[in-house]
Amino acid sequence: MEHSNKLRAGDSFPTLAATKLDGSTVTLGKPQGNTTWQAVFVYRGKHCPLCTKYLNEIENFRQAFADTGIDILAVSGDSKEQLEEHLEKLDVNFPIAYGLTEEQMKTLGLYISVPRSDQETDHNFAEPGLFVVNENGKLHVVDISNNPFVRPELGALSRGLAWIRDPSNHYPIRGTLKY
């Protein structure tokens, strides 16, 4: 039985890149602008209506994340064409990248699904994952799901991250005990 290699809280986030629609390369976990942290939301792809809903919901919290110095990036294994089609159903102002490879999905320790049919999609795809990378390139928060129904509630997530980021709380990376 093959075991996946899950990233551990506190690990250095791996250097992985994907592509934005303008053709530029984006490095996952590397904050843009004047932010010092990045939340990387991995989603299943355009075939998933729950992903569409969740990505649109993330937009409602984009400013709350920005106010606490956290940049947002969404990424999937979709092709450029699939992302272009998906954008017709999205109303977001944060970067979305495409082309996450199966090898990159494995590096991130994501669950990977095989499409049920050609109508669903034309490639194996990652199930949802969230990786919040701090200013030191360390994985500060991780949430990995094996299905689209279990994802962090964005209000609780944005409030929790604001609390973690408040220096007066001295909140460490949790879940780092090695066993």
Rank of each mutant, 00 (worst) to 15 (best):
A97R: 13
E59I: 13
L87P: 00
H3I: 09
E102G: 08
G129L: 07
V40K: 03
K178P: 00
G77M: 04
V114C: 00
N5I: 14
T27I: 13
T19A: 09
S12K: 13
I72F: 01
P148F: 04
T68R: 04
T36L: 04
I173P: 00
R62F: 01
T27S: 10
G109H: 05
V150C: 05
L83G: 03
G69R: 11
Q32Y: 05
W37C: 08
L16C: 07
R62E: 08
P128G: 11
T52W: 11
G77Q: 03
T36N: 05
H86Y: 10
V142P: 00
H170A: 07
L177S: 09
Q104S: 13
D71P: 10
L100K: 12
P167V: 01
L139H: 08
F149I: 12
P128H: 07
Q38A: 10
V42I: 15
A74K: 09
G45Q: 12
K46T: 03
E59P: 08
F13W: 14
E153N: 08
L108H: 04
K20D: 00
Q82N: 09
N147Y: 03
S113A: 14
E2C: 02
L139Q: 10
D143G: 07
N93V: 01
I164K: 00
G23L: 12
K80I: 05
D71E: 11
R151P: 15
P148V: 09
N5D: 13
A74Q: 06
N124V: 12
E135F: 02
P167N: 07
L7P: 09
G23R: 14
C48D: 15
V141C: 02
K53E: 15
L7M: 12
N169Y: 00
V75G: 08
L108F: 06
D143I: 00
K106Q: 14
R151S: 13
L154S: 10
T15R: 11
P148Q: 12
I112F: 06
L90M: 09
E81P: 01
S76I: 06
S79V: 01
P49E: 15
G29P: 13
G155Q: 11
T101W: 10
E85S: 15
K178I: 11
L90V: 07
F41M: 02
R165L: 03
P95G: 06
P14N: 06
L130M: 12
V26A: 15
E127V: 02
G129V: 04
A97D: 06
I96G: 08
F65V: 04
L177E: 11
S79N: 10
L28T: 03
E88A: 15
S145R: 02
Y111K: 08
